[in-house]
Design a protein around this nucleic acid. Structure first.
Lengths: 167, 167
DNA sequence: CCATCTATCTGGACTTATTCAAGATAATCG
DNA sequence: CGATTATCTTGAATAAGTCCAGATAGATGG
């Protein structure tokens, strides 16, 4: 029951401890990478009625306090995960939109030294790996659209190098 | 006058050559990384009245034909650039939202071999470098919000490691 | 050059994601 | 306990993008 952890985390961040906030942190801890809508649904299942505005407000407050981290991999909506201050990267399935955490590839900051930084002071590099997850590959042998895939993510994939459908 | 190039590019892609399309390609060529709204404005400056739907339709058609590439770096809207099939990456200023192209850092695919691919078949890695551009650094010495910065982009920056203001 | 066919545009309503505004509620401090 | 003030509620607004039905205009064939 990690609710007590969340209580102290909120207190430590100087935020008030309220039921919607605790429920939100629980939900994000249990279902990482949900968007505001999904989180709102899950929070309502625990607390009854929670307004959309309250959910957004909580998500923004917790993100500002760096208790949550906003993730945006190209879809219309943002997704949330517990902030672990480890600057990990993300793996996105272009079929089902599944999003997984992934450790940085080479050492600590593989991509922090581009050829030409254009005068920018670079602070961090975010890497998004795009591909097809094992589930989708397994079920893609015959069917083209097996899951309720967010169409936006498919539209984002710039160039698919290999043929997605087998002969 | 690159309009003729665009004409042949459209013809080569099997698309009809229309004024909105030519204007859109001109606009994107001259102002890379504009969003649909900006592009629509610029197109209207050239052609008079062009509907929102026409702009989206053109952008989608040209993106599908791989004459344009959609870029999404975390803001609400998508941005467009000419498709050069080079899989370059992007540099985003968290102050003003400026977006610049950047060549891949190390060799060809520095980040394509993560520690654990979670069973994914990884097709490509997109890298977004976040930082502060030279203009914003120059003007940030005293003022905190110097430019009309898109607030969404600032909200995206997960963790600012070093102090943004100089000593 | 004209007819025709179909890809493209127009205008308006609609969806989704997120935010704004004003007032009610309740968490924390003294 | 009472005051303060952050936080929630309701309801409407904004922004980005899409859908639909119908009008228009490229690209051929004759």
């Amino acid at each position: 029951m990690p609710t007590l952890d969340h209580t102290s985390a909120l207190r430590g961040a100087g935020l008030r401890v309220t039921a919607p906030r605790l429920a939100t942190m629980d939900v994000v801890a249990e279902h990482p990478h949900g968007d505001a809508e999904v989180i709102a649904q899950a929070v309502r299942e625990r607390l009854g009625t929670v307004s959309r505005q309250a959910v957004y407000d909580v998500l923004n407050a917790l993100s500002d306090a760096e208790l949550l981290r906003r993730v945006s991999v190209g879809g219309r909506s943002m997704q949330y995960e517990l902030h672990r201050h480890d600057n990990h990267h993300h793996l996105v399935c272009r079929r089902c939109g599944r999003l997984e955490d992934i450790a940085c590839a080479i050492g600590e900051a593989p991509c922090l030294t581009p050829h030409d930084d254009h005068g920018f002071e670079i602070e961090l590099a975010e890497v998004v790996y795009r591909g097809v997850c094992s589930d989708c590959r397994a079920s893609s042998a015959d069917s083209a659209e097996p899951l309720g895939a967010p169409p936006a993510l498919a539209a984002l994939a710039p160039t698919a190098p290999s043929a997605p459908d087998s002969p």
